[in-house]
């Protein structure tokens, strides 16, 4: 039985892709075979964290959606490009970063039903234990679909006014879709705040468990851009927070 986990945020810039990559890496280092699918077709980005560049991208999610390849053909084994040996496996299904292909998706759209089929096939073909879905911000059809089929949903938010309102909507919608595990992660919290208080406050307002409150730190931002933080700094308090989030998502 594979676990499908969606990572979502109402707005961009919350650190969604970064959190996805770290949780993926921590699960894989526990021995899981983990697939990561970047459904943020309009603004892809997670491939950079796994060290996959344009030249080595054979096929992408776009190719599958347009029927030019099978979904498993778009899966790239990035386990060895992490720089740290791990016991599990990571397969990345990236979105195309070619400007023309991004524009085509925006212009023509695609059948969201294909995604669900693709997820199922991917789990079977690659014998995955976990499938991580890096969603597109906002609540469009394919995102709602991802949420609907997920066993666990992690909503990432920042402590600012725009996120409070949007996250409230997302939580409400996710409830209506009966997602079994619904968790919040408060990211990039200014250090002047009391982290524990912020967590309690958010939990109380949304009536939803908060998996972690991660402070904003320039140091963290600088290190994160250089690779996957939790693998490079396994003993850092932030890595410990990611590890806890991963465990709760796995139920």
């Amino acid at each position: 039985m594979a676990t499908i986990i969606s990572i979502h945020s109402f707005r961009g810039g919350t650190g969604k892709s970064n959190t996805t990559a770290n949780i993926t890496a921590l699960l894989a280092s526990q021995g899981y075979r983990v697939g990561v699918i970047d459904t943020d077709i309009q603004s892809p980005g997670i491939h950079v964290l796994f060290g996959l560049d344009d030249d080595h991208m054979r096929h992408s999610l776009n190719d599958y959606l347009w029927g030019t390849c099978e979904i498993e053909d778009a899966a790239h084994d990035v386990t060895n490009s992490l720089g740290v040996p791990i016991s599990g496996k990571i397969f990345l299904i990236p979105s195309s970063i070619k400007a023309g292909e991004i524009a085509r998706v925006l212009r023509d759209g695609y059948d969201p039903g294909l995604l669900n089929d693709g997820f199922q096939r991917l789990i079977e073909a690659l014998d995955l234990d976990v499938l991580m879905i890096d969603t597109h911000p906002g609540l469009n059809e394919e995102t709602l679909l991802s949420i609907a089929i997920s066993d666990a949903l992690l909503i990432i938010m920042r402590p600012d006014q725009q996120d409070y309102q949007g996250t409230g909507v997302t939580v409400e919608v996710a409830r209506k879709l009966d997602v079994p595990h619904l968790l919040l992660l408060v990211n990039k919290v200014p250090q002047t705040y009391n982290m524990a208080e912020v967590g309690q406050q958010i939990e109380k307002i949304y009536n939803c468990p908060v998996a972690a409150v991660i402070p904003h730190s320039d140091e963290l931002m600088a290190l994160a851009s250089a690779g996957i933080f939790s693998l490079r700094y396994p003993d850092h308090p932030v890595t410990a927070a990611y590890r806890q989030v991963a465990a709760r998502l796995m139920g």
Binding site: N116, E124, K176
Partner: peptide
């Protein structure tokens, strides 16, 4: 929330979501 949940797509999705989850879990 209502603007989303009142769409047909959402209603269908909600109906099939349970089914879809069950299906892949069964598999």
């Amino acid at each position: 929330v209502e603007s989303i949940t009142e769409t047909d797509y959402f209603q269908n999705l909600r109906a099939s979501a349970v089914q879809m989850r069950r299906r892949h879990q069964e598999r």
